[in-house]
Amino acid sequence: MNTWLRYLSVLFMAFALVAVVSCAAPSKQQSAGEYVDDTFITTKVKTAILNDPDLRVTEISVETFDGVVQLSGF
């Protein structure tokens, strides 16, 4: 019975390790050029939102990473 409990605990720890490693966030490192490009895209999107009278600018967050724009808010 003691051996069975050891195998079970090792199996549990292996699954826990796989779960933790697979859920790790990707690296958020960018080159200077990529950062400048993303900043330019973010600025263009924020300007477009600001120029639309039907949108509430203060309630919309704009984030850009690797050319992908994410809008959040209400």
Rank of each mutant, 00 (worst) to 15 (best):
M1P: 13
N2P: 09
T3R: 14
T3I: 11
T3A: 09
W4E: 12
W4F: 07
L5D: 06
L5I: 09
R6A: 06
R6L: 00
Y7E: 13
L8D: 04
L8N: 06
S9K: 13
S9F: 13
V10H: 14
L11S: 15
L11V: 01
L11M: 10
L11F: 12
F12H: 02
F12N: 00
F12K: 02
F15M: 08
F15R: 11
A16F: 14
L17Y: 09
L17H: 05
V18Y: 15
V18Q: 10
A19I: 10
V20K: 07
V21C: 08
S22L: 03
C23T: 04
A24I: 08
A25M: 09
A25T: 08
P26S: 01
P26Q: 12
S27L: 03
S27V: 09
Q29P: 00
Q29L: 12
Q29R: 14
Q30W: 11
Q30C: 00
A32R: 01
A32H: 00
A32C: 02
A32N: 00
G33R: 04
E34D: 09
E34M: 06
V36D: 07
V36T: 07
V36R: 10
D37Y: 02
D38M: 01
F40M: 00
I41M: 07
I41D: 05
T42F: 10
T43P: 01
T43F: 03
T43I: 03
T43A: 14
K44D: 03
V45C: 03
K46G: 04
K46W: 03
T47K: 14
T47E: 12
I49V: 08
I49W: 14
I49L: 06
N51M: 12
N51L: 13
N51A: 07
N51Q: 15
D52A: 11
P53S: 08
D54V: 13
D54A: 15
L55A: 04
L55V: 02
R56W: 15
V57G: 02
V57Y: 15
E59K: 05
I60Q: 14
I60D: 04
S61M: 04
S61K: 13
V62W: 05
V62L: 13
E63A: 09
E63M: 08
T64M: 06
T64A: 03
T64Y: 13
F65Q: 07
F65G: 01
G67D: 04
G67E: 07
V68P: 04
V69P: 14
V69A: 15
L71R: 04
S72M: 05
G73N: 12
F74C: 02
F74W: 05
